[in-house]
Write a protein that binds this DNA or RNA. Structure first.
Lengths: 207, 207
DNA sequence: TAGATTGTTAATCGATTAACAATC
DNA sequence: TAGATTGTTAATCGATTAACAATC
């Protein structure tokens, strides 16, 4: 299972997947690495190299079957698992994510919300009632949650991560701007907005 | 001006900056690359290499002056410019960003909001009145906006980018899941949530 | 002096790009 | 057959890691 695929390759797969979804809606049946690359600003060689990591998906002289390639990439990414998410911290960002529609097109379901603020617990966001964070263990088991999304302040994030791991989530998506420590078998992805904004500022200063 | 610093290095600078801010609050005056690396899960060699790209900031046998290094990195990132942001698209995500507090600690100011939805125009979010997107050019000039933040649906994102560029913004931070085309002198950073979520799903599927 | 730690050069590792045979 | 396009190997490029002299 440990084939050591480069993170750069993995990070491009969702882009391929999303573009293939769009291409599918345009009712194209075949696409070349050239056309896919043109749409994503990625070289066709790079795309063929990425795909070759996982097998042979195309036909020489023809290109790739759009439906088939989309499904294959979806399977590589594990989207068929239909992962269920719980958002911990229903502030502005957590609330926005609870309403984010693009998740469902990738096969994810937001299935539970948590907060520890009395004035937020019990309210309804996008059809889901906000649970008391104290009930995390039961609700996560009950709702068969796979992924914990952390949108609490940095100071509380590690404690929330610990609770989520104890409750049995299989992965963590962290929006708090802090390094978390989790067991090595629990994948963790950090979404750090200050990196992008900082990089933008840097490039704007170079002109 | 084109020294071609690696993007990987640039992306780590905001992490260094933020950690130095925290260390400063702890009233530490000196920090070693070892300690900084421990806090960020980055090797000390990597940190010294990154910093060496921009000059000599430390003292052999001693370490780095926390205040001085923080200021130097802030200047490299251009944070002293006090960039002013405008958010276009005050839906859930745009609204969340408008309320996001971490921006100000990096020296950014959210100075204008835009939408084209009649029922949102004129409302107040975090103390700012939402402007009609039709007035973008005047408001952006008036408010001296530097950065346009795009939080509209993918289908509208390119048109918004064109408007922002025409209005004179110096950089674009794009949250719409689509590749935008902007003039080469306008830095563009894409914030694509499906990459992180896709990568998380991939890693969870490998266990 | 001994210990600590930087800045920098050299070595290694890994990712991207180029080239092209295979083949539809 | 001629043109198109993949899959894969080789070449290049760039980033990280290791090592260590300089020096506080």
């Amino acid at each position: 299972m440990k084939k050591s695929i480069s993170q750069a390759t993995i990070d491009r797969l969702p882009l391929y997947f999303r573009t293939l979804q769009l291409v599918e809606e345009e009712e194209m049946d075949i696409i070349s690495s050239d056309e896919l690359g043109r749409r994503l600003d990625i070289t066709p060689e790079q795309i063929r190299k990425d795909l070759a990591t996982f097998g042979q998906f195309g036909r020489k002289g023809i290109g790739y079957d759009v439906h088939e390639l989309k499904d294959k990439i979806g399977n590589i990414l594990g989207l068929q698992n239909g992962w269920r998410l719980a958002i911990v911290g229903v502030g502005h960002l957590g609330g926005a994510l609870a309403n984010y529609v693009n998740f469902s097109s990738l096969g994810f379901t937001i299935a539970a919300l948590f907060d520890n603020n009395e004035s937020i617990i019990g309210t309804t966001v996008n059809g889901l009632t906000v649970n008391d964070a104290a009930c995390m263990k039961e609700v996560i088991a009950d709702q068969e949650i796979d992924i914990g999304v952390i949108t609490v302040p940095a100071a509380e994030a590690q404690a929330v991560a610990d609770l989520l791991v104890a409750a049995g989530v299989k992965g963590i998506w962290n929006f708090a701007p802090i390094r978390l420590t989790v067991p090595p078998n629990i994948p963790l992805v950090n979404e750090d907005l200050s990196i992008g904004l900082g990089a933008l500022s840097y490039h704007m200063s170079q002109e």
